[in-house]
């Protein structure tokens, strides 16, 4: 590659790393349709590398929640935001780094490991607040640092099925 989508400006690169590991890098605008394209491209790349269905479902959901949070909360009301994803493929897990240049993540969001409260009554069911819960449930070794003007979120996605050796 690199491959670039001319409609939404998604750039994808696969980089060979030492010890038979591969890194996928993708840079895209923090806008809903570009996030969609980035997810489709990333998942296509991971499936080509032998990722199984269950792992693909989990990975796509985690990525979607992380990217949507950035589009909505790091770059509120802005159309010039950029997201960078680096995915390091190891045999049984993905090491993910997501970088953006938006507003810092409030500490309380990262602690959001509980489901939003609900008393089971339809009228009071929560319509939001599921994002961080899903991210925390489906990832491990989550860390967040503010580096200069950038947010850097690191986490791992454990895979149930080993991916093809490179």
């Amino acid at each position: 590659m690199p491959a670039e989508s001319h409609t939404t400006g998604v750039t994808l690169r696969a980089v060979a790393r030492p010890n038979g590991r591969r890194e996928l890098r993708i840079i895209f605008p923090a806008l809903p349709m570009a996030v969609r394209d980035a997810l489709v491209s990333t998942l296509g790349g991971l499936r080509d590398m032998g990722m199984g269905d269950d792992d693909a479902i989990q990975t796509e959901l985690v990525m979607a929640e992380v990217f949507n949070n950035i589009a909505e909360h790091a770059y509120p009301g802005r159309e010039d935001g950029i997201i960078e994803l680096r995915l390091l493929q190891e045999s049984d897990r993905l090491t993910c780094t997501v970088i953006d240049g938006g507003q810092p993540i409030p500490g309380s969001d990262l602690l959001g490991i509980d489901l939003p409260p609900s008393d089971g009554c339809i009228a009071s069911l929560p319509e939001g607040g599921f994002g961080w819960y899903l991210i925390r449930t489906l990832t491990s070794e989550m860390s967040y640092t503010r580096e200069g003007q950038k947010n850097v979120l690191r986490f791992k996605v454990d895979l149930t099925r080993r991916m093809r050796a490179v």
């Binding site: 949507n68 339809i122 319509e127 994002g131 899903l134």
Partner: peptide, 16 residues
């Protein structure tokens, strides 16, 4: 084929 937490929220919103 794919639903995220925004889609989930919209389905719950529809139910309400």
């Amino acid at each position: 084929m794919f639903l995220d937490s925004s889609g989930l929220g919209a389905v719950i919103g529809a139910m309400k």
